[in-house]
Design a protein around this nucleic acid. Structure first.
Lengths: 141, 141
DNA sequence: TGACATCCAATGCGCGTGCATGTAAGTTTC
DNA sequence: GAAACTTACATGCACGCGCATTGGATGTCA
């Protein structure tokens, strides 16, 4: 750590906090108001969608999903429960290991996901593209 | 938005998530276990400490603190309550505007803060210094 | 086969957060 | 100076999170 690194590190952290909070707040708000999806919920759909290219029923093991997100096992379990209640996802037992669960996108789940994708992308572009990366955003909502 | 920006933006967001989660988790854990301070609590102390250079009793208005952090007004209020209960901070009425509160570091608050500062800095350096910025960290705790 | 460790997912619990609201204090308008 | 509005902070409430625990399914070793 050469001289000045303290200041650099603090500034970098500050910047990370700013970007993270502004972006995730707006993601949360936009996804919720436009598609009735929380951010964690969308992220699960994102992984399911990615897992099977773009055709029907995405399918993944809970454990694998957990490994791809920054969410505890219990939080993931409950997130999936919410998605299941909303009819966007189905839990299916795994034949070879009855401890494990597969997760599958329902048609309605894929539909909702496809609808939400542009919203997600738009927010990311807005916040992660340098030119206007200025200022502090006003509050969360 | 030129071609390829989608991928760039996603990768950038991914990276931001990674850094944010790994860093804030470890900050939280280290501050808690070594100094009995939550991250929000430390951040309030940080602002109070900054507000008055390095000599005695930092002093700032709640509103001003709120403006410097990514925390709702209510969350700040409760964070300060916790700090006050721990004896690290004192609320003091403002003579000119009796709605407003000043916040002051107590000696014990400054002491705790000074003790925690190196821990905070160390974690930042660990996570925000390029060379070892590799991989995914294993879980939170 | 039986005893024990390991693994996956669900659930009880406490905590910190944001939103909406309440209360008290200032400000504006007439 | 009274009424309407705005501002600062606290509080009720619901929610999502992580930790610890539980329960069932596997794996292992004797």
């Amino acid at each position: 750590m050469e001289a000045g690194s303290d200041v650099d590190v603090c500034a970098k952290w500050s910047e990370t906090l700013r970007v993270y909070h502004n972006t995730s707040c707006e993601l949360e708000n936009e996804l919720q108001s436009r598609h009735e999806l929380g951010l964690s919920e969308f992220e699960v759909l994102l992984i399911l969608g990615r897992t099977c290219g773009d055709q029907a029923g995405g399918k993944a093991k809970m454990k694998d999903i957990e490994a791809e997100m920054y969410l505890s096992q219990s939080a993931l379990s409950r997130t999936v429960t919410r998605l299941e209640k909303a009819g966007l996802v189905t839990r299916a037992a795994c034949d070879f290991d009855r401890r494990a669960n597969f997760l599958m996108l329902t048609p309605s789940g894929r539909e909702r996901f496809e609808a939400a994708k542009p919203t997600h992308r738009a927010v990311l572009v807005k916040h992660l593209t340098d030119p206007g990366s200025s200022k502090r955003a006003e509050a969360c909502s």
